[in-house]
Structures are given as C-alpha cells and as structure tokens.
Design a binder for these strands. Structure first.
Lengths: 344, 344
DNA sequence: CTGTTAGCGCGTTCAC
DNA sequence: GTGAACGCGCTAACAG
C-alpha cells in the first residue's frame, strides 16, 4: 500500500490548505471554480488517489461487501458470484470473496476477518457443516445487512434468496410418473443441508400425490455431492426389482450412473429413466442427453446482491424471502420408449 | 460499517488506557499476563473487533489483494481463483474479486478502484480487448506488486504465470500426426490474445516439424470462445477435401462440432479426429469422449498468489516468469480406427 | 509493566 | 470562499 502522495502534498504544492483540496475533490459547492480547476489538474499530475482507509474512518462506510460460498469451482456458485459481481459493480461496491471449502471453522474465521474489514454487508451461502448460527447473530446484532442465498439457515433473521428446490424435485418426479415410472428412486444430498431436505420432500410429496408408495430403500443420501455419489447410486441399484427411474441431486452423478448402467448392459431411457439437477453444461453433452432441473443461479446472485444493497441504502427495512423458480429441462434420458417395438 | 465498540470502550470499561488494550490484543511482550487475560475476556464479551481501516492507516498495509479475471463463470478461471483463494487464506490475505467481462474499460475502472482500496498486490488475467498497458505501468510505478496469469501483457514489467499453450497445441497436433492425420485443421482463438497466437504457433510448428504443409484455409480464427465457434468450424468444414482432424481452442466447441458432424453423417474418430483444449468436465461425458489438453488452472492460481505474496513480503525482488506444463489427455475422439475392417 | 502524547490521511465543524 | 483545529480508531514513541 504505497500511496506516497497524500492530500497534504497536493495542498502544499499549491500553497493552499488541505480542506480546500478536500472540498474541490468532492465537488462541494463552496469552492470557487478557479481553485477547483487548479486543484483537479494538480491531482491528476501528481496521480493523487484519496486514501480509502482514511475516508472509511470518517464516513463509516467501506463500500466493501463480503461474499462467502462453500466452493468457488462449481458451475452453480461461480454463476451466482458472477451475478453478484455484475450488480455490485453497478453500484460501486467491491466484493471480498471467500470460500469455506464446506468447513464451518473456516467460514466462521472468514466472517470475523470480514467484520474486521468493516464490510457494509454480507452475502453468504453456508457450508454443509454449518449448524451453529452464533456468528450470524453477531453480524445481525452489529446491524450489518446480511443476505443468505441458496444454502440458508432458517434460524437467522435476515433476507434470504433460495431456489424452489422442492418444486424442482416435485416437477422432476411428476415428469417421471407421467412417463409411466412407478419405482422411482432418489439419490438425496447430504442430510444436513436444507436444500437436500427440500428436494427429498418434493420427491416424497410427488409420489404421495400420485398415489405411489414410498420405498425407503429407494432413497439414499450421499455425504458429498462429488465423491460419495457412486456409492449411493450403487446402493440404490441393489434394490430388487430395480427402480425404473432415478432422480439425482446433481448432473455429474446422474451421468456417472448412466455410464455405470451402460456398462452393466442396461439401456437409458428404456430400462431406467434418469433426471439430474442443475443443468450443468455436461447435461447437454451426455449420451443420452440428460433431463435435468435448471436452477437460475446467476439470477440468485443478482437478486441477492440487489436486496443487500437496498438494505444497506435503507430502502427496505423488513427482511424478505425470495424463492426463485426452477425449470425442468426435458432431454433424452427420460424419453418415452415403446417397449414392444424395441429390442436390444 | 457499524462497529460501535472501539478500543476506547474496552479501555474505559476496564478503567485502563487504550494502549494497554492495544498491547494485550497484539500479544506484545510488555503486558502482564493478568491484564492481558482480563482484556481478552472483556474483548470477547464486548464483541470488539479491531478496525482494519484504522490499522491500515498506521501499518501502511491492507492485506487486501485485487483479483481481476475476464469472466468468473468459467471452469478455467473459477479453478484459478479457487487456487488463489486457498493460498491467500493461508497467509491471512483477503481478495477483492472483479470480472472485466472481457471489457478493457471495466478492467481499467476496476484497477482504479482497487488502487483506491490500497491493495497490497494485484493478480490479473487481462481481457481480450486489452491492448493499452498504461494502467499497469501505473500500478508498477506505484510499487504495487503485480502478477499476471494466463492472459498476460508482454510489455508490462512484472512476474507472470502462464500455461505452455504452445507446447499443449504442439503435443495435440503431434498426437494427431502420429495417428496418421495429414490434413489437420485448427480452430484458433481470438486473434489478439497471446494464448491464441501461442497455440496457433504450436500447431504450425508441429506441422512443419513433421513435414506437413500448412493450408491457410484450414486455420480459422473465432472472435469469441463461445458464440463464434460454430461459424468458424463450419468454415473449416467447407474445405474440400475435408480435414481428417481438427484441433480446437476449447472443449465445448469441439463437442459442438462433433455433434454437427454426427448429424452430417460423419463418424468420429473414424472420419475426422478431434482434439479439444482445457479438459473441462464435458470432455469426459461426450460421445465419443474428447481427447483434450489439460491445463493446470488451479495450480496457476496457487502459484500466482504465492509469487505475489513473496513479492509483497520482499522475499524476492526480481520478477520471474513461470510456464506450467499442460498434459495431453487421450480419449476416444482420436482413437485409431482400422479403416479396412470398419464399416458403417 | 503502564499511561501519555503524537500522528497515520482525511472530512468536518467552525471562525475568518 | 478559505484555513485552522479537531477527531475518526488505532499504534508507536516516549515517560514514568
């Protein structure tokens, strides 16, 4: 942080007082046009940039927003952050980005750091190991606007932006039922995550609403979205008779499963229909292409950032909850197959 | 930025001076164990967090690093940022992240903002519209450590971390040649980008080294990695005779092309062999799976951040250039096919 | 070991 | 319209 040239230097080199320079810089009205002009010229020549740290001390505002996500290298979160970034840039805010790596300790430490930086607001999607909400209560107590998105904590009193995962899963299962499936399995996400619970509930309710029995063996939770999914879907496939459809928590595991089934000599969508979740790029590329639930991640980011800024500006005092809609993207992995004419 | 509780409050509530509190906080040696203990207890009870802005004013150090990338929602850059984040977190730095959206004006404005925040260092991968290096010279002049990664500007005097795209492309083409291809086309990236030029040179040199003629019609530049690729590969496919292999600048366009060729009744790898670039998740999923050039993006991020911190800490005064190696990941899209036994 | 003083760079009263 | 003085929250230098 080298900014050798301060407001003093500008003032001295012009033989005027610092307060005049300060006024000229901030377009205050009580400065003569002449002096303002000379000041601004000098400022440019000297490459003077006001020191934010000093300004923050006075203004009690940093224009800094903290953003914490579980992981950065995921289509979902990088899209969301992209949305956040675009909105913040428009409003002259900068974002300090942290990834918790799904670790509550790191998350907590990051928040402490961010508080030290006097962020004007915080956007967070909590890690899957987060249960304690103490640190968030502290944020709220300090009157720092807080918006939780995607992965939220119900107990924290703040605005929240989520995706209607329940409806997403419901629509997926409904689609499968309409395709004639009756033994529909569900590879569920980590049990602690609210989004996993919501999706599972959507799955359960869809089955119920259509009069299908729930077979507990057809629902298997995985501990991690990435590493643990294969174990989980293999467990599902130990059912006898096999499910005629599986509803997944993400696209990659759905595709991994399709490949596995292929190797086992099963055909998709004929023998088993598959639905993913997310609409990642991979879902268009797999063979068969994957029916999946699209989540508006970029919009989640944009909306969250917008809400946060409104709260900072005092444009809204009450907290709000938004739930964005998903969209079922139907592709080949759930296509109808007339069994009688098909052989192989 | 509400932090009503300051060091004064702590001092007052304990009936001691602020400097004692300050000392206790920073584990200075000239404080009695007893007072330190009571101070720390009080600090916790009052939820006091030191004000970084004030500290920065003294220390002339913000522990803030600026990070600018062309886009956030890309496998490559989100991986790189993830690497940066992990390294910075270890060293107690925070990162302010900006995306230029490939727009030089935005890039420039972001840098100005970051300078205002008195960042201790800057990590940047320049936009493809960046030609002017004036703002970077200013950063260098202000003695702010700067590391460019992936997309660099040769003219700027700073440390640089790149991927050996030249060798990556060379290896890809060499692989195709060894597979017997002789009419190898290249879908090149935006002409202004150094990485596009390097990859093209690797392509050209490989052809030359193996005694193959370069056909200018077999090399087509696209203006954008995403939108413009289909136009470009269709132009390549207007060649008569058709190429027997195409070397792409990314995986998605390679896969789009494979699909297009399929619809046209051509078979891959039999009729045309395809190589991508990046090793994105999609490359494992396509049918046929895609041979591609893996770039160590996470490592690029880690290394860049490490270099920057060393420079900030004064551990290294000279600028260095690192060029990380790519790895050719061979999959089905370039598999050998014995033509005589194959029919379709 | 602890308290007092000064000053980091800037904005904001006040006088003039 | 302009300048001097004060304070934002904190640390460093100096006393004691």
């Amino acid at each position: 942080m080298k900014s050798p040239v301060t407001i003093k230097d500008v003032a001295a080199s012009l033989g005027i007082s610092v307060s005049t320079v300060s006024r000229a810089m901030r377009n205050a009205k009580d400065v003569s046009e002449a002096t303002r002009h000379t000041v601004l010229k000098k400022v440019k020549r000297l490459q003077y940039h006001p020191n934010y740290s000093a300004q923050c001390l006075i203004n009690q505002k940093t224009n800094l927003i903290g953003v914490i996500v579980p992981v950065l290298h995921s289509n979902y979160f990088s899209d969301a952050i992209s949305g956040i970034s675009d909105v913040l840039a428009e409003s002259n805010y900068q974002m300090i980005v942290c990834q918790s790596n799904e670790n509550y300790k790191i998350e907590q430490a990051s928040i402490s750091k961010l508080l030290g930086y006097n962020i004007d607001g915080l956007l967070i999607s909590v890690s899957k190991s987060t249960k304690n909400d103490k640190i968030f209560k502290e944020v709220v107590n300090r009157n720092i606007p807080l918006v939780m998105f995607d992965r939220i904590l119900d107990s924290v009193d703040c605005s929240k932006v989520t995706v209607d995962e329940y409806e997403g899963a419901y629509k997926a299962v409904e689609h499968l039922i309409k395709k004639g499936c009756v033994r529909i399995a569900h590879l569920a996400g980590p049990q602690d995550l609210l989004i996993s619970q919501n999706r599972k509930q959507g799955y359960l309710d869809a089955l119920n609403d259509y009069g299908l029995k729930v077979n507990p063996n057809m629902v298997v939770h995985c501990k991690s979205f990435e590493d643990d999914a294969p174990r989980a879907f293999k467990k599902i496939l130990m059912n006898d008779p096999l499910p005629d459809a599986i509803c997944f928590i993400n696209d990659q595991s759905a595709i991994d499963c399709m490949k596995y089934l292929h190797r086992k000599g099963l055909s998709i969508p004929r023998d088993i229909k598959i639905v993913g979740f997310n609409n990642d790029p991979v879902s268009t590329v797999s063979d068969p292409s994957l029916t999946t639930v699209m989540q508006p991640s970029y919009e989640v980011g944009k909306l969250s950032a917008g809400l946060l800024i409104d709260e900072i500006d005092g444009k809204r005092t009450r907290h709000v909850n938004y739930e964005l809609r998903t969209k079922l993207v139907v592709r080949e992995s759930t296509k109808s197959v007339r069994q009688e004419t098909k052989k192989d």
